[in-house]
Design a protein around this nucleic acid. Structure first.
Lengths: 292, 292
DNA sequence: AATCTGTCTATTGTGGATAAAAGACAAATA
DNA sequence: TATTTGTCTTTTATCCACAATAGACAGATT
């Protein structure tokens, strides 16, 4: 197999949803726009729709024949890109599994285990290396540096520098900037989740990322924004595998966010800095507590 | 060709220098240690030495027969790794050539031009993407973001944050730390070059990197140290292709370094910060002036 | 007893092949 | 005239093969 047609399958599934809401599909370029794929893929989808008797397709006429059924969808396992599969598989090994710092990482073995070619694994490791958790010995293996206390401290040190700088930029944004609207939406979501915290505390992780990314983006600095990828991936997997006191921790973080948001809104640099520091300090504690 | 034997050729050349200074070579593991290669490569080198009648080799006895001649060495073009070749070729295109921001980068075309396989180019681009100069459109081409004024400003903003933080760590290092000795060696080199500036100003680039890397390392933060790679590569190529007033610029930077070094030695955080700021400000100016 | 060598195996680096996906262009259509 | 479609070409993502290189282990040597 040269390439998995995951782009096709994922777009096919999303196109089924479009189909469910209309009686005839739009033009090929328009569909491509909506689905974020090329016309080649759109045409492949339409062809398959026709085979499945979901539509009739004659040039510009694409008439919906029936609603999609659950079994019309491709299973979600088949729509994940190879890169996502490798990432998940790898992160499980190093964050959840008992992976010792200093351990060797073997491209071939990893590839065999995941059931994929070495090239993909290799490219993943190269991309992943910028997160500072692994290191390459040229002409030889990779070394796992490990998700250690030092790693967490180094990560949060830079995070704090960057976020303080970003928060300072944020308060200086003109009122007309779209970030303020996004901030309001985020704030509203905080209130919603807090009002039903027992059931919805799991939504925090995603909201947390959305909020901090918004703050970082106001730095208008690609290095600061890109760095947030590292924080993001670490916290993402950290939340997934460390669920002790999740409800309580998340509730506290939500409250801190609200104070932080209010401080940003005040346009008062001093207040924003304080609120930011307070939140980052407790975020760091939370992260450190989860490391043995 | 599956793999260029550049490791062998480079180690061979370096081994010729070892051979020139002795009448019999040490054991295979020891040679491997010295050259930084595996025993397999050492044995390949010894075998070739024997063929070239440079030594006789019988188990532990490796007796030198004659001194190496210039034509015993492999030409330097053949000892560069593929990654180095691709990097140079690519940097020439984007920094020196008239590469417009927004331009598409085509893996296949780049590979053809450099005369190499696509895999190597692809891996290079992935590694290079962390420098923030290119960006990938999934399933499609890369986009050149360009060595623009914004890029330089974003780079220097982070650089200043990191270097100020590092300088603050530096002054707090205990006197017993090896960084102080390295600092002295670097300082001495500054004086040497300044004393003969007209002939030796070109050595500045390398010394500059050595000095700032030393400072960054005292942060003990992998993200700060790794970030210096970006600064390093940008300044490296910048120095190569922008030689207007090089002598004068370098002389000034050397003087600033000396003041900065003295301030670090004083263990006075305030003084170090001021000297650091002063130097970084002029480094930024220099970089900005070279961008249209 | 410790190190070195001979031999063998495993892994990495790199080019090449191929299906999936993107994209270009002219003819068709509204 | 502006889109849309049909057709065709190019590029990317991925697997595989193979030489270079690293590394393991037992027997030889000091």
């Amino acid at each position: 197999m040269a390439k998995q047609n995951t782009v096709f399958k994922d777009a096919y599934n999303r196109c089924l949803k479009v189909l469910a809401e209309t009686s005839s599909l739009p033009s090929e370029p328009e569909l491509g726009q909506v689905l974020g794929v090329s016309r080649t893929t759109v045409r492949a989808i339409l062809g398959r729709f026709e085979e499945a008797k979901l539509i009739t397709w004659d040039k510009r006429k694409k008439i919906v024949l029936r609603q999609p059924r659950p079994d019309d969808y491709f299973p979600t396992e088949e729509t994940d890109s190879l890169a996502e599969i490798i990432e998940r598989s790898f992160m499980r090994r190093i964050l959840a599994g008992g992976a010792e710092p200093g351990m060797q990482i073997n491209e071939l073995e990893l590839a065999r285990e995941i059931g994929t070619g070495t090239t993909s694994v290799r490219e993943f490791l190269i991309r992943f290396s910028r997160f500072g958790l692994i290191e390459k010995r040229p002409n030889s293996h990779w070394i796992l540096k490990g998700f250690t206390r030092e790693f967490a401290l180094e990560l949060t040190e830079v995070r704090e520098m960057f976020e303080l700088r970003s928060a300072a930029s944020f308060v200086a944004l003109p009122d007309s900037h779209s970030a303020w609207q996004e901030l309001s939406r985020i704030e509203a979501l905080h209130h919603e989740i807090l009002a039903d915290i027992d059931n919805r505390y799991k939504e925090f992780s995603e909201l947390d990322e959305r909020f901090h990314l918004l703050v970082h983006k106001s730095s208008s600095n690609r290095f600061i924004v890109d760095f947030y990828d590292i924080i993001s991936i670490v916290f993402h997997y950290h939340y997934q595998w460390n669920k002790t006191n999740a409800r309580q921790r998340n509730a506290r973080a939500l409250e801190e966010h609200l104070a932080y948001i209010e401080a940003l809104r005040s346009h008062d640099a001093k207040r924003a800095e304080e609120a930011c520091r307070r939140h980052l300090r407790s975020a760091r504690e939370t992260l450190l507590q989860s490391i043995p």
